[in-house]
């Protein structure tokens, strides 16, 4: 699952900075139903210029050379926009650097001699596939419930035909920055997916195009979310863990729309 690209092999990389000698404690679990445990690895000679994932690549190369099973972890774009590379690093989702995904965390944030504990996201709705890889498709189930707008697609409409005030566009765009990595669920002491769902609700509910399905969407997405996840107690850990800095205010917005959805006369939803 982990791949290496020549740069991280050690022989071709040019080390300008320090190198770190690390001790890693990584959750190893061969399969969904297998027992898992924390396994210690010594990893000397890590360049501080490496990203966290490149450090894991280095570990895996050495494991493969010793004919051991490499650590499975999910990754794709390695530039903080795909949302696949989440892991719990020393008790923090995506590690100690705020506002970034694991792939954007660099080893210069650590010191030689550090012990780094790496675990998969833990939630009932995120069953472990293998090692650090979890099945996050519960998030897809939430989006399927209403994270879309229904339009008759035709020729592209005139771009400015629906006026969107600047603060509205900004707020909707900030919510739409969610990459669905699941760090909010992983960081939440309650295992709640409130921040993810709220971001997906808000980026549509704020915009004029999202108004037609605003209340049916909110009701369906919240109720789907609650089939899989815990409840929100506003600790704020999700906001702190979010690599895209999605605001807790989106949850406030979603809560308001959910309660309103229960009382709204839906036949009047088209009125301004």
């Amino acid at each position: 699952m982990s791949q290496t690209n020549g740069q991280t092999g050690g022989q071709t990389a040019v080390h300008h900075g320090r190198t770190l000698d690390l001790k890693l404690c990584i959750w190893r679990q061969p399969g969904p139903r297998a027992e898992g445990r924390m396994v210690e690895y010594d990893l000397p000679g890590v360049s501080e210029d490496m990203s966290f994932l490149e450090m894991l690549d280095l570990l895996n190369e050495r494991l493969i050379a010793k004919e051991q099973e490499p650590v499975a972890f999910e990754h794709d774009c390695r530039e903080g926009i795909c949302g696949s590379c989440g892991m719990m690093i020393n008790g923090q989702a995506h590690g100690p650097q705020l506002g970034t995904a694991t792939c954007q965390l660099h080893m210069r944030k650590f010191n030689s001699g550090d012990v780094i504990e790496i675990e998969p996201w833990r939630a009932a709705a995120f069953p472990i596939v293998r090692d650090l890889v979890v099945n996050r498709s519960a998030l897809d189930r939430i989006v399927e419930a209403g994270g879309y707008i229904s339009v008759t697609a035709g020729a592209a409409p005139e771009a400015n035909i629906i006026p969107v005030p600047k603060p509205v566009a900004d707020a909707a765009f900030d919510a739409a920055a969610c990459i669905g990595c699941g760090a909010c669920v992983a960081a939440c002491p309650n295992g709640a997916a409130q921040l993810f769902t709220a971001a997906k609700v808000a980026h549509l509910n704020l915009l004029p195009q999202g108004q037609a399905e605003r209340f049916s969407r909110t009701e369906a997405m919240v109720e789907r979310m609650e089939e899989f996840f815990g409840s929100c107690t506003f600790h704020g850990e999700c906001e702190a863990a979010c690599p895209k800095r999605i605001s807790l205010e989106n949850i406030v917005l979603m809560n308001g729309d959910y309660v309103r959805a229960k009382f709204k006369n839906r036949r009047l939803a088209g009125r301004r």
Partner: peptide, 21 residues
């Protein structure tokens, strides 16, 4: 009860809370 069902397995490493007070 719901929250305990949603996180049946705790993290093995100690949590480092940032925002929760």
């Amino acid at each position: 009860r719901m929250n305990h069902r949603a996180r049946p397995t705790k993290y093995a490493s100690e949590r480092d809370y940032v925002a929760a007070n």
